[in-house]
Amino acid sequence: MSIFVDETTRVVVQGLTGGQGRFHGLRNRDYGTKVVAGVTPGKGGTDVDGIPVFDTVEEAVAVTGANASFVSVPPRFAGDAVLEAAKAGISFVVCITEFIPAKDEAYFFNLLRDQYPGTRLLGPNCPGIISPGKCNIGITSGDIALPGGPVGIVSRSGTLTYQAIHELSQQGVGQTTCVGIGGDPVPGTSFIDCLAAFEADPETKAVLMIGEIGGADEEKAAAFIAENFSKPVVAYIAGQTAPPGKKMGHAGAIISGSQGTAKAKMEALAAAGVVVAPNPTAAGEAMVEIVRKFA
């Protein structure tokens, strides 16, 4: 099994006619993802390499039965695109858009939470999600992932997610689902959401978690793991040597005062029984060792 997306997921790409939307949408389809529709206002009735384009998500859902959306539109349109998907009844929205104002994120996060509880948002500013061999939504290169499990991956960083997938695949250790939750201040899906889903997924036997400096989501995840999570977890936190007060690339990756340091996160996770690795390679090795014991 897998979490959030699988072979039955039917994807509409909002922004399919744009450069990035087309590039990644077609790559996702090539991977085997059921990309059933595109949406671009004013371009309804056209198609992109055989994928029908609609004016609205509502139409796309009505005609194609899409149940997931891939939002690839510029920052100023992203909030409306996410809400349009939610209103159309889409249950899983992946938003890769970077540079969305934090206020907009906070607004649509809370609007979804209050008024569209049936919609899960992944991102913004995330690489997407891949359930290897089944479904790939976003910008992850499908070639590096290995189907079959037993490891679930959840990460705040894009390239580090690829690095983690690669470390495992090279050792013949597959993945159930790899979720990139993104590096923005208000992510739609948190570590805890992913951990809860992995806990419920019988094929996921262990979880590799990649966090980074800033915020307190890793600390909250540690508390969740201590209370509610029964499977082994290996974690790596990026930014152990980052200086305070500087945004390390991601809008969310910033140490403010004494808040959000890697040290605090690593200590919280270790106290919750998580194997905390000093770097991505060591994290991969630790996970391989855990998985070998299952066999």
Partner: peptide
Amino acid sequence: ANGAGLAMSTLDVVNQ
């Protein structure tokens, strides 16, 4: 490095 996470991680590893 390419990617903020990988760049941060590279700093960590150099330090280690």
